[in-house]
Amino acid sequence: MTPATEHTAQARKRAAVAGHLLRRPAVLYEQLRRQGSLVWSGSGGCWLVVGHEAARMVLRDERFRMPGADQNSEWGDGAGHGEFVRSLLLSAEGADHDRMRRTLGPAFSPRAVRARRAAVETTIGRLLADIGPDGRFDGVTAISGRLPVSVVGELVGVPEPERADVSELCRTISQGGGLASGRAGDDAVRDAIAALDDLTVLVRRWLADPVPDSVLAAIRAAAGTPQALSEVEAVANVFSLYLAGHDTSRNMISGLLLRLATVPELLDDLHEGRRAAEAEVERVLLTESPLTFTARLAMTDVEVAGQLIRRGDRLRVMLGAANHELVTTGQSAGPLAGVAFGEGRHVCLGAHVARLEGIALLTVVARRCAAVRLVGDPRWTAHFLHRGLETLPLEATWR
């Protein structure tokens, strides 16, 4: 075998392994779990937090913080757009975090979210009505890629005609900001900065006359008070809310559609009340965690699961693996048991919104559809941070 042939064979083998893990990450989670609650990754230069209790401890302990952007990038502290990253609710700490959470939080309270259920169900009904008479559709394109953008757009207060454009701006910012996949290339950074400038102009205009009962209206109302957000903070959190809709909610909804298509009795059980939509949403959040990991940095020496973590050590909290432990050990009974949306002060602000979307989806689909079937092979997104589907070919039979 020549070196070139051997290299090709190794590349194919790595691609096959990666493809298998994308389809069934539980295999990797189980391998990690056998090594203990905390596993050192030499290739990643970080600790993998695998155990459920260890994950909860790290997420809740304020001695661990988000690591922030690459200090040598445009987005690092002291750089041109470092303030934008520090202004994200996920990155902010201390008094700044508490101030922003007090302003943004009321729109995401359980009561406020429940009040939006009828509107969310109406949106889902419209999306189903767009499916052709043959009942064939791609679940990602037709439903899970559109529903979260509509819901978060209404919640934030983005005018409907501009929501698709805002989604593209936010994705461009994410890709060029190095926020999810390390340092970005020069072209991506330039595109991200241009997109951020465009988004800032839009947010400025929306804040001048915000939609009532929206996040932007809450930001406008807080102006001149101790809870006021700066313009950069307002833009940063519009961005992060939209990004969560793109990724976490979309991936969760895709997982629910796949489950409807692969568990034949589920649709009838939901329709007849033999199963609760809430329980099915929690099951998918545990078994198909939409975000597979999140990062933390140790601010001081801390002991985790019997292992001393040194100040400056990086940790990757494996949310999917932590939830997998609950499933495989039978500890998953009860609502809100997993860590799919994190825990502690940085728990996902939109967790109740995502759950509402899932519950409303199952409710409306069970009401409208007699069956949902796979008509092709689902394709998982080739990204180990996000556990989601790229395509999901389905066919529905209407009631």
Score class of each variant (00 low, 15 high):
P133A: 12
G135Q: 08
A188Y: 07
A180L: 11
V158Y: 11
G182L: 03
S174Q: 07
V158L: 15
G177E: 00
L179I: 15
E160F: 08
D138A: 03
V166H: 02
P148S: 09
V189W: 06
A192G: 06
L127C: 09
R146Q: 09
E162T: 02
L179Y: 14
A180W: 01
A188W: 05
I131G: 11
G185W: 12
E168F: 01
G182M: 03
R126L: 08
L155N: 07
A192T: 05
G178P: 09
T141I: 13
Q175Y: 05
D165G: 07
A188I: 06
C170E: 03
F137E: 05
L147P: 06
T141M: 05
D130K: 11
R126M: 03
G185V: 04
A142D: 15
G132I: 06
C170I: 03
G176E: 01
T172H: 00
T141F: 15
V156I: 11
D138L: 11
T141Q: 15
L128G: 01
E154M: 09
V158Q: 00
P161N: 00
A188L: 08
A192L: 03
D130E: 13
V158I: 15
V140F: 15
V149M: 12
A164N: 08
L128I: 12
A142V: 15
Q175F: 07
I124N: 02
